[in-house]
Amino acid sequence: MAVVSTDKWLNEFISARKSTGKDELTSLQCSILCDRLVNLFRDGLPEEIHYTLQQQGLFLPHEEVDVEKLKKHNVWDCVQQEFLYLQRKWNGPSIPIYIFPITQQQTMTNKNGVAYPHSLFLFVGDLEKQELQALLAHEYNHVCRIHILRKTLEDMTLLDSLILEGLAEDVVKELYGEKWIAPWIQSYSDKELLALWETHFLPNLQLQGIEQHGPFLYGGDLPPWIGYCIGYKIVQSYKINHSYHHPLFISSQDLLVGSNFPLQ
């Protein structure tokens, strides 16, 4: 299925917005964009889907968006072509990919993505071609990994989530170079990572439910993005120890066992 023509949805919204009052813009955006996604989310309410997408980076209803500029930069075509390449490379599933402008309130980055077992969403601003390709690869690698694990998001363990993020950053580095990997990778020394691993991560590796893993991945009481960094270092050390360059199909436990992170 691959890339959905959300540019047409966006033009429909922009056209309808001209004759809509400010207090009705949220309902209009929800109707035009999210009514089309109800079946994708197991008949979830459009309002719930809308809220979720806004949390992930969807542009706000009153914000100006330049669809033609995105089309001029071949955003939809670029993602489609790169998806076909990655699908062949990883023997991955065919899923719908939805592309929307990112909110202007997101000042730290001009991109974000979210992967589900059944679909993928990209929220983008003004990106270089390779940056867009790297964003897609990171998120589509998640989709492939989830299908390989054959687990629901509720059944995934903290270890699975760490490896999920580590693998995605590893492929970005492999395919597009270090320029596009996340900056937090170099934020912590190996000594710092191992200390936090032993005190906070090791006792919780079997914690199930991807929604429970946020504090370990993003930080809060823990340092920012610490789980992402640990996952990346697990994958990298496994590859160095085993001279293996395709860890996508290896189990989370085997990747950990072959890494430099102790099991006890």
Rank of each mutant, 00 (worst) to 15 (best):
S5G: 02
K8R: 14
K8W: 01
W9H: 06
S15C: 02
S15T: 15
K18E: 13
S19V: 06
K22R: 15
K22L: 07
E24H: 10
S27G: 12
L28R: 11
S31N: 13
I32A: 02
L37Y: 06
N39T: 06
P46S: 05
P46I: 03
P46M: 04
E48K: 12
Q54H: 10
L58C: 11
F59G: 05
F59I: 11
L60Y: 14
P61Q: 06
V67L: 06
N74T: 01
V75C: 08
V75I: 14
P96T: 04
P96F: 01
I99G: 06
P101E: 08
P101T: 11
P101Y: 08
I102H: 03
I102F: 00
Q104L: 10
Q104D: 09
T107Q: 12
V114D: 05
V114K: 13
A115M: 04
P117G: 02
P117E: 03
S119M: 01
S119W: 01
G125D: 10
E128C: 01
E131F: 00
L132C: 06
A134V: 09
L135G: 08
A137K: 12
Y140M: 03
H142F: 01
C144G: 01
I148P: 04
T152N: 10
E154R: 13
D155N: 12
D155W: 02
T157L: 02
L158V: 07
L159P: 13
L159M: 11
S161I: 04
S161A: 08
I163H: 11
E165M: 02
V172R: 14
K173R: 14
Y176Q: 09
Y176K: 09
Y176H: 13
G177P: 08
I185Q: 14
S187K: 14
A195N: 15
L196P: 07
L202N: 15
N204T: 05
N204P: 09
Q206T: 11
Q206S: 09
G209A: 03
E211F: 04
P215I: 04
P215T: 05
P215Q: 05
F216A: 03
F216H: 10
F216D: 06
F216C: 04
P223H: 11
W225N: 13
I226Q: 10
G227C: 05
G227D: 09
I230H: 10
G231V: 05
Y232E: 06
V235G: 06
N241Y: 04
L248V: 08
I250D: 05
L255W: 07
L256H: 09
V257H: 12
V257E: 14
N260E: 13
Q264K: 15
